[in-house]
Design a protein around this nucleic acid. Structure first.
Lengths: 341, 341
DNA sequence: TATTAGCACTCCTCTTAATCGAGTGCTAAC
DNA sequence: GTTAGCACTCGATTAAGAGGAGTGCTAATA
């Protein structure tokens, strides 16, 4: 168990290093407000904290830097919510004041504001489309051979795909088909659609309409392709400003990661609600070795609706980010709640 | 007018610098294949070319580097198509062999392949949605107060937006409204929709349905918001590998530019067909001072369908990029042509 | 007259050495 | 238990010097 003084020193080191990005030394620390011990005392405590694994040195005669374990302890035990300036809170709230708001628009702007306020990179995972339920099918013919299939979900999301009609497929056939689909499949959640299409609709379609299989196949691909929810970024280039990423190789790995949407998904620990923090190697990703990710999900009622991740260096301002994220997720949950009811 | 020998030397310098990124010296050049003059002769010619503005020195005793004017001349007069390896051509063609192809999918993958083959950054501007014509309107009610408005265009593109219904707006009202819209506005190009909505539809709607204005306003915002076509990127982080962007400040400016979709649009010189090259300051953008942009548009029949831009350092392999871009635009034009007919 | 060899000079780049300073660990005194 | 003092470490910064690729100019050459 750490003594009070050790806690205080650990906290001071993390707080200082978060701001300065420089290893913090005993003498420097002893001059800080609230620290009443001498540099020598602090040196002794630092040596102990290092032995316990909370601190590291970059070289033999450098100051101390928090280790991953140190950050973890800080985050778990020393993190106190920060008071955010009213101006910044207002900036977030202003997003939601406009009346006619498109979900996608809100999400994009949220990502931008968060990255601006934090100076880190924001990744916003939109509401999971897979959980929406089919509200309506629609097939609109374009030419003799092509048409657009449209699925509208209960949350107002629209998926669509152009498809090739089998030759001889008439507008009348299309109408019949749409009717059958709507009769049988309204209310089915998208993740269930592939199975239900086959079990509930396929045989009926086959018996009433010629060559309907190829269209069903196209419909299947709408949902299967769409199994990733949409990802929005804010402040991708903010990382370039962090001194730990002056190393171009690291930077490149990170940028490449951001470009691979499916890999980005793994950064979110889905299923967990509330705010989650993963530090450095806890992310299990080489490019994220020097990064921490703070994720939070926002909800509507019982359903999970989406998640925000803020990515910064391990030396990130956890206090501030956690608080901002809290404000933002509350606002988002509320906004989507209003939309729904 | 430049002598043959001057042309040859200018060409050799550009070709060499494009590969090495190092200023090229007279002695080094004299050893090159095809160069029969001595280093001293080359020095004299270089001095002349510099005086004419085609070459520059980085410092008094360095080798020569092409100036913007030098690149411009090279591009205008010395650029000969390069033979691309059959493997690479095959890689491009393979994209278009898969049968079921979604326009968006093709475009995304094209951007990726191009950036991979060129090692530069690719920006792909999708077909200009504004020129599509309305094929069908649809309004799908979600709850008592909300609905989704959908516009399908003749090219199979789907735009949608959730909207709030005026209180007391019945399903019957919706149906009437959709009928009126489809009667009056099918065939109207999207860019014309705002005007036509007001002139053709608004008065009829008003006289038949109560409180329909607010919905019309929402419809308007679908198209007005969508006035930028969609932008797809490939290999954003490739620029990090270019030695001229080891400077983080420059890199940051570039990344920020990429993130601003509306600014990116200005990089395309719209209206011009064929391949266009803009070198360094010709782009009129601070972040692009050290970059060249090669743009090409691909067509379907008479209509412009989209454009590709490849962004690299001014010291870019123009020869290779131009050829690759040619292969790609031809393939794209053909692919979209097939889709349409 | 056009070309080329020779040479002094420039200036970037890479090494090596020296200095500085913030920080540490340890010992001894308080 | 705390703190002052001191020798030591090591990264960062600066300075000086060597090396090398390149240039411009002059004079010799074909």
């Amino acid at each position: 168990m750490l003594t009070n003084r050790q806690l205080q020193i650990l906290q001071a080191i993390v707080d200082d290093f978060v701001m300065s990005a420089q290893p913090v030394g005993s003498r420097q620390l002893s001059k800080k407000e609230g620290i009443t011990y001498s540099a020598a005392t602090i040196r002794n405590e630092m040596a102990d904290l290092e032995e316990l694994g909370y601190l590291e040195k970059t070289h033999t005669s450098s100051g101390r830097v928090p280790s991953e374990k140190g950050y973890r302890f800080y985050v778990d035990h020393l993190l106190k919510p920060q008071v955010i300036s009213t101006g910044e809170v207002a900036q977030i709230h202003s997003l939601f004041e406009k009346q006619i708001v498109e979900a996608e628009q809100i999400i994009k702007e949220s990502a931008n504001i968060l990255s601006e306020l934090t100076t880190y990179t924001t990744i916003l995972l939109g509401p999971d489309v897979q959980k929406h339920r089919v509200k309506k099918f629609q097939i609109v013919p374009l030419t003799e051979e092509t048409a657009v299939a449209i699925i509208v979900t209960d949350n107002g999301h629209v998926e669509n795909r152009t498809l090739t009609l089998p030759s001889g497929f008439s507008p009348h056939d299309i109408e019949k088909m749409v009717n059958i689909l709507n009769d049988r499949l309204v209310g089915v959640p998208l993740y269930d659609l592939p199975i239900k299409l086959q079990t509930e609709a396929l045989s009926v379609l086959k018996s009433h309409i010629n060559a309907s299989e190829s269209i069903v196949r196209s419909l299947l691909s709408i949902t299967s392709q769409q199994n990733e929810s949409k990802v929005y970024y804010g402040g991708k280039s903010n990382m370039l400003n962090q001194p730990e990423f002056h190393d171009l190789a690291k930077m490149r790995m990170l940028m490449d990661l951001f470009d691979k949407e499916n890999q980005v998904q793994t950064l979110f620990n889905q299923g967990n609600h509330g705010i989650q923090i993963r530090i450095g190697s806890e992310n299990n990703h080489l490019a994220m070795e020097n990064c921490s990710v703070i994720t939070a999900s926002f909800l509507v009622g019982e359903e999970q609706q989406g998640a925000i991740a803020i990515i910064g260096p391990t030396r990130m301002d956890y206090r501030r980010v956690v608080t901002l994220l809290d404000v933002m997720t509350n606002s988002l949950s509320q906004a989507f709640f209003d939309k729904k009811h």
